Amino acid sequence: MPAHRFPDLPGQVALPEQTRGTPAPLDLFNTAPAEAVQRILLTCLRSPHWAHRLTAHRPYPDLDALLAASDEAAYDLTPGDLAEALAAEALPELPEGVYSAAHTALSAAQAAYESRFGHAFVIYVDDLPPDEALDQILASIRSRLANDPEEERVVAAEELRRLARGRLVNALRGAGNCATSPNGAKPGT
């Protein structure tokens, strides 16, 4: 009888055997030294409080539990924690081949935003096709410039939470340490 069927349950497929060898990324995350985990987490969101909290609550039974803990810790950032995380962010990267006028428009919009709110503009655009990202970034900056500072703090905090979540998933998938800029966080994406 094939190994993938139960002998007394015709037509039922058994669970595949677990392969031995390389541990799953979440297992590595759960068992790595705290300092190493915190370094990785800080590349996803530059908040020591957030990184410490996620590290301290290990082990996580599955990715969904880790992401839920990440969200909760991000929602609980104090204004100081949020300011620290925002200070580490940078202007979103533009796709290759974008013409210089787009760079100029984005730089001007970013300067206006930073002048108004005192920190870099953050937005999560990983769910968008690359050819739509620039338009979404520019439209969002212009729209969010109309926010009052408290309203924008809430929006920026939500975007940081989404960024941290996406970067954390990428880190666990083995996409490196999430970092593509010298400040340790993938700029604005």
Results as ranks from 00 to 15, higher is better:
3 A>S: 15
4 H>S: 05
6 F>L: 08
6 F>N: 04
7 P>D: 11
8 D>L: 15
10 P>D: 10
17 E>D: 01
18 Q>Y: 03
18 Q>K: 13
18 Q>H: 08
20 R>S: 13
23 P>I: 01
25 P>W: 02
25 P>L: 00
27 D>I: 00
28 L>A: 05
28 L>T: 00
31 T>H: 12
33 P>V: 07
35 E>L: 11
36 A>W: 10
40 I>C: 13
41 L>Y: 13
42 L>C: 02
44 C>F: 09
46 R>L: 07
47 S>I: 01
47 S>D: 05
47 S>N: 02
48 P>L: 07
52 H>S: 06
62 D>H: 14
68 A>N: 05
70 S>L: 08
70 S>F: 08
71 D>Q: 12
71 D>W: 14
71 D>A: 14
72 E>F: 09
75 Y>R: 15
77 L>W: 08
77 L>K: 07
79 P>Y: 12
80 G>M: 11
82 L>W: 06
84 E>F: 14
85 A>P: 10
88 A>D: 11
89 E>P: 03
91 L>N: 06
94 L>I: 09
95 P>S: 05
96 E>K: 06
102 A>G: 06
104 T>A: 15
107 S>N: 09
108 A>H: 14
110 Q>R: 14
116 R>S: 10
117 F>G: 00
121 F>M: 03
123 I>Y: 04
130 P>L: 13
132 E>S: 14
137 I>V: 11
142 R>L: 01
145 L>R: 01
145 L>H: 06
146 A>G: 05
148 D>R: 11
155 V>R: 12
163 L>P: 10
164 A>S: 15
168 L>W: 08
169 V>W: 10
169 V>D: 11
170 N>T: 12
171 A>L: 15
172 L>K: 01
175 A>N: 12
180 T>K: 14
180 T>I: 04
183 N>P: 08
184 G>Q: 11
185 A>D: 06
188 G>Q: 11
